[in-house]
Computed example of a mutant assay.
Amino acid sequence: MSSKRASKKVTFQERIEIVEFTIAHELDYQAAIKKYEVSYQQVYNWVKKYEKFGIDSLQDRRGHNKSKEELSEIDKLKLENKQLKARNLYLEMEKDLEKKLQELNRRNKTFP
């Protein structure tokens, strides 16, 4: 029996239902795969996350950044450092561009 299935978009509530079903049926992953038409890997990962971190770990947080209030002090410093590096790079590029423009202007003045 193959448990390989294409990934399926599943809501937070559906994940809870699938995990609860799997746990209630003594971790019968195959039954969950058949009933909900999801992959073994999805069910396995959701069950492990649920057991280790609780129900909130089943939420899909991909693409969602933490708000500044949620960041730890170290994460805030890392974010500030990243922003300063990006600003520094921008200013360096701007300075280099000005030098190139001045150089081109000087060259154009020397040629009639």
Score class of each variant (00 low, 15 high):
33 I>C: 14
99 K>M: 10
72 S>L: 01
79 L>D: 08
84 L>F: 07
50 Y>S: 06
90 Y>V: 00
9 K>T: 14
93 M>P: 00
90 Y>H: 09
93 M>L: 10
43 V>E: 02
18 I>D: 02
9 K>N: 14
40 Y>N: 11
58 L>A: 04
35 K>S: 05
60 D>Q: 06
45 N>I: 05
19 V>R: 04
70 E>K: 09
40 Y>H: 13
15 R>K: 15
66 K>W: 01
41 Q>T: 14
87 R>S: 04
27 L>W: 08
88 N>H: 08
75 D>A: 14
46 W>L: 07
10 V>F: 02
92 E>G: 03
80 E>W: 06
80 E>V: 09
54 G>E: 07
25 H>P: 05
27 L>E: 15
81 N>H: 12
65 N>W: 00
81 N>R: 13
23 I>S: 05
99 K>D: 12
28 D>C: 14
79 L>M: 10
38 V>C: 10
79 L>A: 11
44 Y>D: 11
19 V>S: 03
97 L>K: 12
75 D>S: 11
95 K>W: 03
100 K>N: 10
11 T>D: 11
100 K>F: 08
93 M>G: 13
90 Y>F: 12
67 S>V: 06
43 V>K: 01
88 N>Y: 09
61 R>G: 01
92 E>C: 10
96 D>I: 04
83 Q>T: 08
37 E>Y: 09
93 M>Q: 14
37 E>R: 15
21 F>Y: 15
51 E>A: 08
98 E>K: 15
100 K>Q: 15
41 Q>K: 10
52 K>T: 13
84 L>V: 04
72 S>P: 03
98 E>D: 13
16 I>N: 02
11 T>L: 11
64 H>I: 13
18 I>M: 08
60 D>N: 15
62 R>V: 08
102 Q>H: 06
20 E>I: 01
101 L>Y: 07
49 K>C: 05
29 Y>G: 00
76 K>M: 10
77 L>N: 11
80 E>K: 15
41 Q>C: 05
75 D>E: 15
31 A>R: 12
88 N>C: 06
99 K>G: 04
11 T>V: 09
22 T>P: 03
71 L>D: 00
68 K>V: 13
88 N>L: 13
93 M>R: 15
31 A>P: 11
35 K>I: 07
86 A>G: 00
11 T>E: 12
77 L>H: 08
82 K>G: 05
26 E>C: 07
59 Q>G: 03
58 L>P: 02
75 D>M: 07
89 L>H: 02
94 E>M: 08
92 E>N: 11
60 D>A: 02
33 I>H: 05
18 I>N: 04
81 N>T: 13
19 V>Y: 00
97 L>Y: 09
26 E>R: 11
61 R>E: 04
91 L>K: 08
14 E>D: 13
60 D>S: 04
